[in-house]
């Protein structure tokens, strides 16, 4: 098969991969913030709930979670299509790791910031969202960037439940043709480029969020 044909088949698969990332990323982010905040809640039950979610999803791997959601849930009468299973499994999995990032980021903000916010009579909610969170976000960005890359990589697992993503197409092409070096070489480059683009985007976001903040010094 000519290289440009291989390229266009793979590019279509890359589009599917990008769509998966675009759907799983918001879910992962939401889960990360919800469970990360719950882990700092005053209520023990909520803290436990979040901790169980995090330990559970970090203690097993994305592939097992994916299989469980895709193969086991239908037996409980919850039929779920492959794409949804993939998005849910990856979103919940990466969200559990993100939960730790959110929690750590919030805890890393200097205690003096909360004290100043109390002295200015901000409500607890305002303290969190106006004072602490904007500062914590800056520090969360680099680990979030790493997690976003982990998410891109993890999307390759959905090829094992027959979603025609980049990896799936590569494997079918490889089974069909014998140009395995070109195919897998190209696929690796595709993933690498996606990861680099994502890294640059998140660095830009970090810079934007950290405007004026000279981290490390006393403000």
């Amino acid at each position: 098969m000519p290289l440009n044909e291989i390229f266009s088949v793979l590019a279509e698969g890359a589009l599917v991969t990008i769509q998966l990332v675009a759907m799983a990323l918001p879910l992962a982010t939401a889960m990360a913030f919800i469970s990360g905040l719950l882990r700092l809640s005053e209520h023990r039950a909520l803290r436990w709930l979040a901790a169980i979610y995090v330990e559970f999803f970090r203690g097993t791997s994305a592939l097992i979670q994916l299989y469980w959601i895709y193969f086991v849930l239908p037996f409980f009468g919850i039929s779920i299509d492959a794409i949804t299973a993939g998005v849910v499994a990856l979103g919940l999995n990466i969200g559990a790791y993100g939960s730790e990032v959110v929690r750590g980021g919030l805890l890393s903000v200097d205690r003096g910031q909360t004290e100043a916010a109390i002295a200015l009579n901000f409500s607890p909610r305002q303290r969190l969202w106006r004072i602490i969170m904007p500062q914590a976000l800056v520090g969360m960005m680099p680990p979030f960037g790493n997690l976003a890359i982990e998410l891109v990589k993890a999307t390759s697992l959905v090829s094992l439940i027959t979603i025609a993503d980049l990896t799936y197409r590569a494997k079918s092409l490889a089974d069909m043709t014998l140009q395995v070096e070109e195919i897998f070489g190209l696929v690796l480059v595709f993933y690498f480029v996606m990861a680099q683009v994502l890294t640059l985007a998140i660095r830009a976001l970090e810079k934007h969020l950290g405007k004026g903040m000279d981290r490390g010094g006393l403000a």
Partner: peptide, 23 residues
């Protein structure tokens, strides 16, 4: 405060106006 505890993510003016506006 001894160590100022200014809000590093806000301009000087916003450091001063944030609480009057929202509190």
């Amino acid at each position: 405060f001894q160590h100022f505890n200014l809000f590093p993510h806000m301009t000087v003016l916003r450091n001063i106006t944030e609480a009057p506006i929202h509190v």
